[in-house]
Design a protein around this nucleic acid. Structure first.
Length: 421
RNA sequence: GGAGGGUUCGCCUAAUGGUAUGGCACUGGUUUCGAAAACCAGCAGGAGUAAUCCUUUACAGGUUCAAGUCCUGUACCCUCCGCCA
């Protein structure tokens, strides 16, 4: 959510922001509607002021004849207020609807582009492995090593179902334990949130109303979140925080549920795209300052890159183009890991900052030094996602004999084991 | 799933249907060599340069000239019954 005042004063900026993100929204229409809103609001407030004033007189007045007369008068004023309120309500409904569609303004440094194909590579790290044998894909390797069972996964869950088994499970736990230590050492507070959450949290983070078809919904009207970002952001909804506690850094750990409604034909094999997975997510709340947000955005990105580097997996980072940004995102980096068999990089992590877009929707505020209320800034970045990380980990570390070497940093979490055979 | 009780500022608390009280805590000031104490002021949100106005008693509606107070619904908390890893 943007501030309507900001939209009014910067209509051209907001309209071109929408264009850059390929969001269809009519800013002029919104402003005309807002003119009406302000007009009605002012009229209603004036009438209310009159009612309040006269009601006071009624309470004080001893003269019962005058009292009856005033009450009669107020009855008609009340009717007028009611009809104006109904009119305002209709205006507000339309106003809200458009406001929820207005995107945040992307940063100057965000490249133009119509799809993720136009994201720009900004960093490359690591040497891609060379094999003196024909490398296999993770499905074949892991199935042979009994780390995963797709056939039975499909039997039990259907399309995109999977079982992790044996060393597939142990490797997952090793990654989680390592990640927990790694990010705790960088000041993150671990959180296991409710991933079954109310609608408001999805509106707050910007997933609703736009992406309803990507979410699983329960018969009670709750939704299953696709990321811990949703409930962790909701943690401080409608709170006034003490500025001294900024930055707040959370490491959310949760299962994640995604319907992948628009992706039926994509990645039909393997662990890249599944309906149910696990993710550790970095979430930061900080004071409302652009430079601060940018600084933490880089910091979050560095955290994940350091983590990946410690696992020794080649990656590159792209800066996402306008059309590949979410509604509230100002700027986003995707980190993509090298997948040898596919001969390309695949997304593992995504870092974005929002300015106060999310906190405005959530009502997350703080008082600054001069006592003024501000909406906080929010950011998030994947810490690590399993089992997707296994795809590149397994493929990059595969050996000629079909075994998989375990990255050094994970060995202590696997009883000192050096490889999976 | 069922039956009761509850929700007013950070904490406690007041309000015959008459327009949110007081205390504690906190912040600033006076005083002091400094502190404590005392005293003064501030202490829900929003609009406005300001005067001022609007909103605010968990949330959403309703009745009323007027709702913390009456009515309906929802959420959450507590107690008990049932079920249960």
């Amino acid at each position: 959510m943007l501030d309507i005042k900001f939209i009014r004063e910067n209509r051209d900026i907001v309209q071109s922001a929408a264009q850059k993100k390929q969001v269809d929204v009519d800013i002029i229409k919104l402003i005309n509607l807002d003119d009406e809103r302000l007009k009605e609001l002012k009229a209603i407030e004036d009438l209310r002021a009159e009612v309040n004033r006269v009601s006071n007189d009624i309470a004080r007045d001893q003269d019962s004849a005058l009292k009856i007369q005033l009450i009669e008068e107020m009855r008609s004023v009340k009717e007028e207020i009611k009809s104006k309120e109904e009119k305002l309500k209709k205006i507000m409904e339309e106003w809200q609807l458009i406001m929820l569609q207005v995107p945040n303004v992307p940063d100057m440094s965000v490249p133009d582009g119509a799809s993720d194909a136009e994201n720009q590579e900004v960093k490359v790290w690591g040497d891609k492995p060379t094999f003196n044998f024909e490398p296999k894909d993770h499905v074949e390797i892991m199935t042979k090593l009994k780390m995963v069972d797709f056939e039975r996964g499909t039997k039990v869950h259907g399309f995109r179902g999977y079982f992790l088994t044996n060393e597939g499970v142990r490797l997952s736990f090793a990654i989680w334990n390592y990640a927990l230590e790694f990010y705790s050492a960088r000041g993150f507070i671990p959180v296991i949130p409710p991933i079954l959450a109310r609608k408001e949290n999805f509106i707050g983070t910007g997933f609703l109303p736009q992406s309803e078809e990507d979410l699983y919904k329960t018969q009670d009207g709750d939704y299953l979140a696709g990321t811990a970002e949703v409930p962790v952001m909701g943690m401080h909804a409608n709170e006034v925080l003490d500025q001294k506690i900024f930055p707040i850094k959370y490491l959310g750990f949760s299962p994640c549920y995604r319907r992948e409604a628009g992706s039926h034909g994509k990645d039909v094999k393997g662990l890249i795209r599944v309906h149910e997975f696990y993710k550790l997510e970095q979430v930061i709340l900080c004071e409302a300052n652009h430079e601060t947000s940018v600084q933490f955005h880089e910091e979050l990105t560095k955290n994940t890159e350091d983590f990946i580097e410690s696992l020794g997996i080649p990656y590159h980072r792209v800066v996402n183009c306008g059309a590949d940004l979410g509604l509230g995102q100002v700027k986003k980096y995707d980190i993509e890991l090298w997948v040898p068999k596919e001969n390309k990089y695949r997304e593992i992590a995504s870092a974005s900052y929002f300015h106060d877009f999310q906190c405005r929707r959530f009502g997350i505020r703080y008082k600054n030094e001069s006592g003024k209320m501000n909406y906080a800034h929010s950011l998030n970045q994947t810490a690590i996602a399993t089992p997707r990380i296994l795809v590149s980990l397994i493929e990059n570390y595969q050996q000629a004999d079909g075994s998989v070497k375990i990255p050094e940093v994970l060995r202590k979490y696997m009883g000192g084991k050096e490889s999976i055979k």
